[in-house]
Structures are given as structure tokens and as C-alpha cells.
Design a protein around this nucleic acid. Structure first.
Lengths: 356, 356
DNA sequence: GTTCTCAAGGCAACCGGTTTCCTAATTTTC
DNA sequence: GAAAATTAGGAAACCGGTTGCCTTGAGAAC
């Protein structure tokens, strides 16, 4: 007795069933089979049923290459991370993939590793595969040269942006996030705020620092000392704390350019006997759970909502594919996430208000 | 004057050039154009040149859907992460993508988010797209039910493994890694070793713990106290350290089930006045740079070489696609990475030997 | 009984390539 | 100078679907 073919393995693992197989089994022509399966043409209900059950029996799945060939659409998009896939790319990818999957699009993943040659190679590959659109992401928010000019498909930049203002980019409002951090500290009554952040030449560090300085100026205040530019590391956070503690000026809050730096600051403050948040309130940036939650105490931080950013980018791309492009920079707000590093000590009768 | 068409934007952004366009421009038939571009048939060198330059001028890239249709191969593989894309998936994906890209394969990314429905949906999608193969990854090393039976394409499981021993799986040798950690501590002369790790029901925690216990037993030693099962968090590391310090037995080393736990242990030890590595040597697991390097002191750890694992998985998949399947579990070794948390204090005349 | 109408479904072109087979032109051979 | 051999390149089938158009047959209208 030959092996019984079930619905699941029918035709497998040999060659996947084609519509000709279905048509033959149902006793109709391929054209009719196609119409039956897609609800086109005028067919008897009984015929449609026969074709459908034949398709089921064979486990028929239309070959998307064939569909692509005559629809001109592949229902496929490319996602190029210009630098290595990392902590920032993941939520972006997850969000984008989420929206695209809902639109029945599949995603080609391309990791260009900061190599322009790889990038162009992937671009050619994607175009050759006739993707319906491309999402470009990266680790840095700094604007970059467009990935190509006059491309035959729409492109959306997510997190990073394109230097061409007519390209569609979706970026987090880092400056707004920095202002929210400062506003929060001011609302807590802190007036002597220091800023420790990453390299001065790093776009995010520069933007966040100048936004923080700007907001303080609006309140007639100055930062305690200049912004301390260094590395995006805990070690730098610890080191910078030493600098702050050694200076003449006192401080009652530190706004950090990243959660890693903030955590280094927290550790160094604790080692020096300063209490967080009582003596020094602390705000980080990124809301990276691994850092923010493990920090002692857990860290108030600015969340760039990257997953939402990825979803927005995907939605804009889908719209562009459908002929509704939305060129330009789309700035999406950051969110302040409150934790104990800025918690106001609970006083009887006081109500804790979350501000966003 | 009409916009000058350059080599880059020729034909764009309208419709991408087809081989018919190339043929027409070169004044030959499509068949001849195809032969010229692929080095087939017998053509005059001058004709080939004419066709090639026409293709260049139009920026011609063959439509891969058409290629797929008559070669039966799509040069495409699917990568399904059964649970959310995370810290472990990234190096796996990077490694796999690396090997696959070298084989001119493109990668479809599918994030199943621990949802069996999504997983099956993605599987159907991939099969409909006629991928040449599938890589299944996940966050946990525990064996899982096969993603499908009698699939028409080869499947390789990476990091996770399939419960079907005939499926091809590539997994890290976690037990071997744990033994390397214990061996290292023993070689340093430590005899009173404790173990702090994740949840008891978590496969990795169980495997690593029992391998550590087993290796100690081979040396006639016991763990200090039972393995401390808890969470994969720094907080648990700190808490477990409290338990260890409160117990009667002394300890001179802690092997931790993860770098996060190890870092919690390091912080708690320091807070309690114990020196690392002088009083207590510390080994982590995962070699997660963010944790291992920021730890004070930097953490000796076990690296599962996930990127290599991803590459291996991809290589095995490519081999299977080319008719050379290698069924079964493929175990790949872990590597001990030495850092200061187990550094032997430098004595004059002593040479530091790295052991792997 | 003849013509008209309409439903049902087959035929074939098409999407963009590759490849096989065949023809026409040129060169070689005697 | 005619036959054979070789070369260059065109025509068409094919991959797996979709779709417009045409054919067929049955029932309705006259």
C-alpha cells in the first residue's frame, strides 16, 4: 500500500503542487482553476467547490514568483541596516516587521555592517528582487547620504534620516526627549543639573546636550559645568562622576546621555556615599530595560519608542507603495519613563503624579 | 532638454528595464541578449559587447521572479525566530546571514513571537514563496517539536534543536562550557565553588548546573551548597550572594549561569567587602560584552560562539540544499574568555597562560 | 423551428527570463 | 564551383500563474 497522502504532506516532499496539478485533479482547465480559487469569472458553485477541495488535497500554495511576474508586485520589502544589527535595530525591525506582516509583506533582511560596498551590493540585490519598497535603518540618528538616487521603489529611513529633505525619514525627537528629562528634574525642584553623555562628535550626544542646555536657559538656569562628553559606557559614567564630585560646584541631579552612562554614575555615586535620588536625581536615555531595571535604584529614562518608530516607518512605506508618499522628516515624540532614580520620597498626603 | 539619463538612473524611476529593452537597444532578439549576458550560446564578441553595454546603459538587473520560475530555485531562505528577536538571535542571524550572503542567498526574516499560529502562518508564507530552505532559531536551547513534517525544503535548527533526532540541529555545547568554567576555577586552585543560575525548569540552567556538579564530582569535590536556582537577573545575583554569605560554608569561587547574574554577584560581593578575584573568583556565562566588560572587575565568561553557530547552521543548510544533508544534532564547543574576575594576581616570574 | 441570450468554462496571450532547436550565412574542403 | 562544415543568431517553448476573449450548449423568446 502506497504511503497515504494527507492534506499536510500531499505532494511533499517532492515538488510542490502547481495549479496544473489542481486543475487536472479537478478535471478543469488551469484558467478555470485559477478563477475558482480567486473568485473570478463565472463558474458553477459546484465547480468552485471541486477545485477548492482539489487544491486542499494537494496542499496547493500558489507560487509567488509567478504571481509577482504578472502582477508586477512582489509583496516583499527590503530592510537594510546600514550598520550592524544591534540593540537599536531590533525594536525597529520588530515594529516594522509587525506592520508589514499585517500587510502580507515579507521582509528581506540585509546587514550592511557599515560597509558601503555591502550596502550597494544589497541595494542591487533588492532591486533585482523587485522589492516593493525599502526601509533603511541604522544605529545612529545622524542624517546620511541617500542610499540611491531615483530608485524605482519608495524608500523610508527609520531612526537615521536622509540628507535629502525630500526623502521620507522617521526619527525620534531626541531634543524633545532631552527637554522632557530636564523638565522632569526641574519639576522635582532640582536646580543644579549636570550632564554626562557620549562623544561630542556623536550626533545624538550633541543634540541631546544642546537641547538640555537650551531648556535650562529658558528657565534662566545653567548646566552645572559644561556637558561632559566621553564614551557611551558605564566606565565613563563612573569616571565623569569622579570629575563632578571633585569640582567645586555642587549638583543635585545628573541627566545622562544613555542608560549605560547613568548606571555608571549611579554606581559611582553610591560608592561615594551619595544617595540616589535623595541627594542626586538621575535620568538616563534609551530606556534600555537591561540597564534601567538592573540599576540601583531603577532608572528613570527617556524612551525613544523605537518599536513604534519601526511601525510608523512601515506604515509610511506601505502608503508610499500604494501611491500615497509622505516625503520629509517625520519626528516622533519620546516618552519619559518614571522610576525610582527620580522618585520623590513619598510624604504622607502627597500624591505621585506621573507626567508624560 | 530632457533630463539626461545616467547609468545609475536609466529607465528609473519608471519601470525597471527588462531583457526585451536590452535586446531592442542592442538590436538583437531576447534569446540572444540572454545568451550574451550569461556567456551561453555562440555569439560574436562584438555582439556580446553591444548587449552588455546596452544592459549597462539601462541599468538592467534580471528579474529574480522570472529566474526563479524556470530554475525552480529562488536563492532565498527563510529564518524563523520562534520567540522574539533578542540578544541571542542577533548573533545567530548575523552569522547565518553572513554565510548565506556569500552564497548569494537572500534571507526572509520572520519573527514568530512565541506564537504557534504566527509560526505556522510564516511557514506557509515561506513555502508559498518557494524558499530553498529554512533556518529555525529561538531564545532557548531546549528541544522543540519540529516546525513541520515532510516539508519540501530542508530545515536547520540553530541554537534550539528539534525533538526529532533526524532533523538537523546546531547547538552549543553548554555542558562542555560549564565544565570549562569549573576546570578553569579548579586550575586556579579554587576548591569551594558555588553555583548561581536561572530557573530550575529552564533547560540551560539545568544542563549547566548538572555539568558543573558532574565535573566537580569527577575531582572528588562537591558544590558549596546546592545550585541556587532563581532568575536570569542581576537582582537575583545580588540576592543569591546574600544567601551564600549568610550560610555557614565559606566559598572562594562562584560560577554563574549568566553574565547578568554574575554581575549581580560581583556588585553584592563588593558591597560586602569581598574582593574579586582575590577572595572570590567569578565566572559568568554568555560573554555578553555589555555585562562582562562593564562588570567590576571585567568578567571571565563562557562564550557560546553564536555567530559561528549561525554560520554553521547556514553552511549546513546550503549543503542540504545542494543535496548533501547532514541530519542529527551538531554540537559546537563553547570558549572560555579570560578576564580579571578570575585573573591570577601577577607574581614576578609567573607567566599568564590562556587556556581554551 | 429558428434566432437570441446568457451562463459556464476553455483557449491563449502575457509577465520576464532561459534554453533548445533550427535556419541562414559564411567559410572550408576537395 | 559545389558540397560540407561551421558559426551567428532568431523563433518558440517553457516555468506557473492570471485574465480577456471566444466557444459551446441550454433555455427563452418569437
Amino acid at each position: 500500500m502506497p504511503p497515504r497522502k494527507t492534506k499536510e504532506n500531499a505532494g511533499s516532499p517532492g515538488r510542490p503542487a502547481t495549479i496544473s496539478d489542481v486543475a487536472r485533479l479537478a478535471g478543469v482547465s488551469v484558467g478555470t482553476a485559477s478563477k475558482a480559487l480567486n473568485g473570478r469569472g463565472s463558474l458553477r458553485e459546484e465547480t468552485r467547490r471541486r477545485v477548492r477541495s482539489a487544491a486542499d488535497e494537494l496542499g496547493f500554495q500558489p507560487n509567488t514568483a509567478a504571481l509577482a511576474l504578472n502582477s508586477g508586485r512582489t509583496y516583499t520589502v527590503g530592510m537594510i541596516t546600514t550598520d550592524t544589527i544591534g540593540r537599536f535595530s531590533i525594536p525597529l525591525m520588530t515594529g516594522a516587521e509587525d506592520s508589514l506582516g499585517a500587510g502580507r509583506m515579507s521582509v528581506f533582511l540585509c546587514d550592511a555592517r557599515d560597509d558601503p560596498i555591502r550596502e550597494q551590493y544589497y541595494l542591487r540585490t533588492l532591486l533585482s528582487r523587485r522589492v516593493d519598497g525599502i526601509i533603511v535603518t541604522g544605529r545612529r540618528t545622524q542624517a546620511r547620504a541617500p542610499i540611491g538616487v531615483d530608485l524605482p521603489v519608495p524608500v523610508v529611513y527609520a531612526f537615521i534620516s536622509s540628507t535629502d529633505p525630500d526623502d521620507c525619514s522617521v526619527v525620534p525627537d531626541e531634543a524633545g526627549g532631552a527637554r522632557k528629562a530636564v523638565d522632569h528634574l526641574l519639576a522635582l525642584g532640582r536646580r543644579r543639573i549636570a550632564h554626562v553623555t557620549g562623544p561630542e562628535h556623536h550626533h545624538s550626544a550633541a543634540v541631546r546636550a544642546s537641547a538640555a542646555v537650551g531648556r535650562l536657559a529658558e528657565s534662566g538656569l545653567d548646566l552645572v559645568g559644561p556637558p561632559l562628553f566621553g564614551e557611551w559606557s558605564e566606565a565613563w559614567g563612573r569616571q565623569a562622576t569622579g570629575i563632578l564630585l571633585g569640582a567645586d560646584e555642587g549638583f543635585d541631579a545628573v541627566f545622562c546621555g544613555s542608560d549605560q552612562i547613568a548606571r555608571g554614575v549611579a554606581d559611582a555615586l553610591r560608592a561615594a556615599g551619595r544617595r540616589v535620588p535623595d541627594d542626586v536625581a538621575l535620568v538616563g536615555f534609551d530606556n534600555w530595560d537591561v540597564m534601567a531595571l538592573a540599576c540601583q535604584p531603577p532608572l528613570t529614562s527617556i524612551d525613544m519608542e523605537l518599536e513604534g518608530l519601526g511601525r510608523t516607518a512601515a506604515d509610511l512605506l506601505l502608503a508610499a507603495i500604494n501611491g500615497q508618499p509622505a516625503p520629509g522628516r517625520h519626528v516622533s515624540p519620546c516618552r519619559l519613563v518614571l522610576r525610582e532614580s527620580t522618585a520623590v520620597p513619598v510624604r504622607p498626603g502627597a500624591t505621585r503624579v506621573e507626567q508624560v
